[in-house]
């Protein structure tokens, strides 16, 4: 990409460089949800139309974007900026679990929705966050796992179908 921009599009290279430079100088972490913002507290966290009793925990800002595209959730977020990864030395200290705890204990939050990924690391993260938050009297839920909408068993991967079967529910 660097060669392409230098050879074919020096103007674009300049715009990209200044955009990155601007982002580096002005972006910081929202004091409430921990995502990137230019302000102390981001617009979403300040919005009066959001339900402040629901707090959704995601791993990364891209996961927040995906949740937003669903239009299914109108609460607030907390972005961990990672997940537990014991073999890489990423633990509760590196992820600042205490900041999330302080955020969830603001008095307004009633339910924490854990939307970490369904990988082993995401699952470990969800488990320990759930224990920590439940011990402080908060209701904790986890997004469901199973077949995708419009999913057909025939075309689904075996691991997903197996786990959907193990986690089947009354119907």
């Amino acid at each position: 990409m660097a060669y392409h921009l230098l050879q074919r599009d020096p103007g674009g290279a300049g715009r990209l460089a200044s955009a990155l430079d601007h982002a580096l100088k002005t972006l910081r972490r929202c004091a409430r949800c921990n995502t990137f913002t230019e302000d102390v507290v981001c617009d979403r966290c300040l919005s009066p139309r959001r339900d402040s009793s629901l707090l959704c925990v995601v791993e990364m800002p891209v996961d927040l974007n995906t949740m937003e595209q669903t239009h299914a959730f109108n609460g607030l977020y907390y972005v961990l900026m990672g997940r537990l990864s014991p073999l890489d030395g990423i633990g509760p200290r590196e992820l600042a679990f205490d900041r999330l705890l302080a955020r969830a204990n603001d008095g307004a939050v009633r339910e924490v929705v854990l939307a970490t990924n369904f990988t082993n690391e995401g699952e470990a993260t969800a488990h320990y966050l759930a224990e920590m938050l439940r011990a402080r009297g908060l209701k904790v839920s986890r997004i469901a796992r199973g077949l995708p909408v419009g999913g057909e068993l025939e075309y689904s991967d075996a691991a997903t179908v197996a786990q959907a079967f193990i986690e089947r529910r009354d119907y």
């Binding site: 537990l84 014991p86 073999l87 990423i90 509760p92 200290r93 679990f97 320990y128």
Partner: peptide, 13 residues
Amino acid sequence: LQSRRVFMELQEL
């Protein structure tokens, strides 16, 4: 052992 350190920290939560 990284996994032991992380495990210990999680037990303290």
